[in-house]
Design a protein around this nucleic acid. Structure first.
Lengths: 196, 196, 196, 196
DNA sequence: TATGAATGAGGATTCATTCAT
DNA sequence: AATGAATGAATCCTCATTCAT
C-alpha cells in the first residue's frame, strides 16, 4: 500500500519538479510517512526513480501496443486520427505518467541517459511499426496516394511529437483540440489520394 | 569578461543538467574561478539564471523576428521551408541557447512559471504572426490553396514543435534532416494549391 | 540455535570491524535472519556485545586457568614454553575470540572501559600467578637461576604480550613461529641457571 | 590554523574512539567550528583520516630513523636500552600519535587495510635494520655473545611490541617503568657475552 | 574583482529500536 | 521466534550564501 502510494507521489513530483528538484522528504510527506520509511521499499532515490520510470514507460508502451491491435476494420483516416486522439486520451487519463515520460525522454538525468536512450529507441520502433502498418493499409485501400511509405511515417510521427509538446504548454483544452484537428487535417490533405 | 564566461557556462550547464541539478560551484569551476566570484556579478543563483534566461529568450526571439524581415521576395514554399531550416540553423549554431529555451519553456522551475508563461505567449504570438504573413502571402500568390488561414498556421507550428523535440532526441544529423524534409513535404502537399 | 549463531556472528564481526563499525543488520544477515529478530534474544546492541564479551573473556580465562593445572610434572623450561604455545594454539583454534579479546582489551568502547579494566586486571592477576608458580618451580628445581621472581614474571608477560600483537600483524605462520621460538630462547637464556 | 587544529583533534578522537566511533561533528566541536567547515580543508572523513594517518606514521618513522643516527659512540647495552626508552619517550611526548599508530596498525578500518599493511612493513623494515646494526655493533665490541643475529633482533622487537601493548593498559607510570627495565634486563642477560 | 573561511539549511542515507502481527 | 513497517536520531556531505580581506 505505502509502496504504491510512494510510487504515485514520486511519479507526480519527479514529473513536476524534476529529479534534483524533488526531495525524498516531499515524497514521504505527500504519503504521510517519514523519509526513512522510503528505504523499506526502495533501495535509494535512484531506485525509486527507476521503478517509477519503468512503470511510466510500460504504461506508455502498452498504450502504443494497443494501437496496432484495434486498427483493423476502420478506414485509414479514422485509424490515424485515432492514434492522435488516443495519445491525447493518454495524456488526459494519465497526466502524471505523461509528464514524466515526456520530461525524462527529452531531459534524462545524467545517470539515466543510456537506459533512456535504449528505452526510447525501443518505444520509437514500436510506434513506427504501428504507424507504418496503418499507412500501408491506407494505401492498399487506396485512401492514401501510392508513394514511398517512410516519408509519410516520418511526418506523422512529427505531428505526434508536435502535439506532445503542445499539450504541455497550451493548457487550454479547446485550443489543444483545435490544434490537434488542424494538424491532422493538413497531414491528411497531404497524404490522401484524390479519390475521396 | 568573467561575467560573460559565467553566463555562457551557466547557459550550458543549466540547459544540460537543469536548475536544481547545477551547482554554482560547477559553473564557477568551468570558468576557472571560485564560487563566491559569481556574487560579484550576479545577486544570487536565481539572478544568474534569470539573466541567462532573458538572454536565451532574446536570442530566440531575434531569430524569429528576422523571419518576417526576409520573407519578401521568395516564393511561399521557399520561405516556409526557410523557417524550418532557420530553426535548424539556430539549433546548430546556438545549441546551448536552444536546449535552454526548450527545457525551460516546457519545464520551468517553480519560481519562473509565470514569467516564462508570459515570455512564451509573447514569443508564440510573434511567431504565429510571422507564419501567418507567409501563408497569407502564399495565398495571394496562389501558391497555397485558398482556405481559412488559422488551420494552416496551427499545423505549421505543429510541424515546428515536432521538429524541436526531435532535434533533441534524434542525435543523427542525417536522420534529422530527412525528418525535416519529409515533414515539410507532407505539410506542403497538404496546403498547396493544385496549380503547381 | 539462532541465539548462538548470533553470538558467533557478533563475535566475528565486532572483532573484525569494531563495535561502531558493525551494524546489527550485518550480524543478522550473516545468520540469515532479519534485524529485529536479534531483539528476541538480546535486549539491545550493548547487551549482545556484553554477552559476547563475557563469553570471550571466559574462553580466554579458561585457557589461562588450565595452565596452572597441567604444569606439574614437566620441566620449567618446557612448561614455560608450553604457555607460549598454548597461547598460540588458542589464537589458532579460536581466532574470533582472540581478536575480540585483544581488540577490546586495548581499545574498549567508552561504555565498557571500567568493566573491561576490571576484567583485565582479574585476568592479568590469574596469569601472573600461574607464571609465577612456574618460575618458582623452575628455581626450586634449579633450572632457573636463583634471583628475585617478579622481574622474571614481568619479562615473561612482556614476551607474551609482544607475541600477542605480533600474531595479528605477521600473518605468516612460519614467521610467527620463528619469532615465538626466538623470543622464548632469548628469554630462557636470560633466566636459566648455568647448570644446563 | 583551523586546518591544523582539525588535524590535532582528529588525531586525538580517532585514536581514542576509533574511526566509526568518531563523528565529524565532534571533531569540529572540539575546534570550535561547525561541521561543514571541515570540508574547506579535507575532502571528506576518509581524507581527514588519511592525512592524520600519514602524519602519525611520519612522526613515528622519524623517531625510528633517529635511532640509527645516534647509536655510534655508546655501548651496545646502552644503545639498545636507549631504543626502549626512546619509544617510551615517544609515547609520553606524543600520546595521541602513539595511540593512533598502535590502534590502526593492529585494527585498520577496512578501507585502509592495504595501505596500512604497506606502511607497516616499511616501518618494520626500518626498525629491524636499525636494531640489527646495534646488535652487530654489540657483537663486534664483544658486548654481545657471538651468535646468529636474527634471533636477537626478533626477540628485541618482541620486547618492544610487548612494551607497546603494555603502555596502553598499564596506566601507572611506575609499573610501566619497572616492566620496561625488567624486560630489558632479562633480554640483555639472554644475549650478552659473559665477559662483562 | 576575487578569494578563503565559515555557516545554516537541507538532503540522502544508516541505524538502533519499537510494535503490531 | 520472527518479520514488515515505521521512526527518531544521527551521520556524512553539499550547497547557496556571507564576510573579511
Amino acid at each position: 500500500m505505502t509502496r504504491n502510494k510512494l510510487r504515485a507521489a514520486a511519479m507526480r513530483l519527479f514529473g513536476e519538479k524534476g529529479y534534483d528538484g524533488t526531495a525524498l522528504s516531499e515524497i514521504a510527506k505527500e504519503v504521510g510517512v517519514k523519509t526513512p520509511a522510503i528505504y523499506a521499499f526502495y533501495e535509494n532515490k535512484e531506485d525509486l526513480f527507476m521503478t517509477v520510470f519503468r512503470e511510466a514507460m510500460e504504461s506508455y508502451n502498452t498504450y502504443i501496443q494497443e494501437l496496432s491491435e484495434e486498427q483493423n476494420m476502420t478506414s485509414a483516416r479514422d485509424s490515424l486520427y485515432r492514434v492522435l486522439s488516443r495519445q491525447y486520451e493518454f495524456y488526459q487519463k494519465c497526466p502524471e505518467e505523461s509528464v514524466f515520460v515526456l520530461r525524462y525522454m527529452v531531459f534524462p538525468p545524467a545517470f539515466l541517459k543510456e537506459t533512456i536512450e535504449e528505452a526510447f529507441l525501443q518505444s520509437d520502433e514500436l510506434l513506427t511499426k504501428a504507424i507504418e502498418e496503418l499507412i500501408v493499409h491506407g494505401m492498399e485501400t487506396e485512401a492514401i496516394r501510392d508513394q514511398p511509405v517512410q516519408p509519410l511515417v516520418d511526418s506523422f510521427l512529427n505531428v505526434m511529437d508536435g502535439l506532445s509538446m503542445q499539450y504541455f504548454y497550451y493548457t487550454s483544452r479547446e485550443i489543444y483540440e483545435r490544434k490537434l484537428n488542424n494538424a491532422f487535417e493538413t497531414y491528411w490533405n497531404g497524404v490522401r489520394s484524390n479519390y475521396n
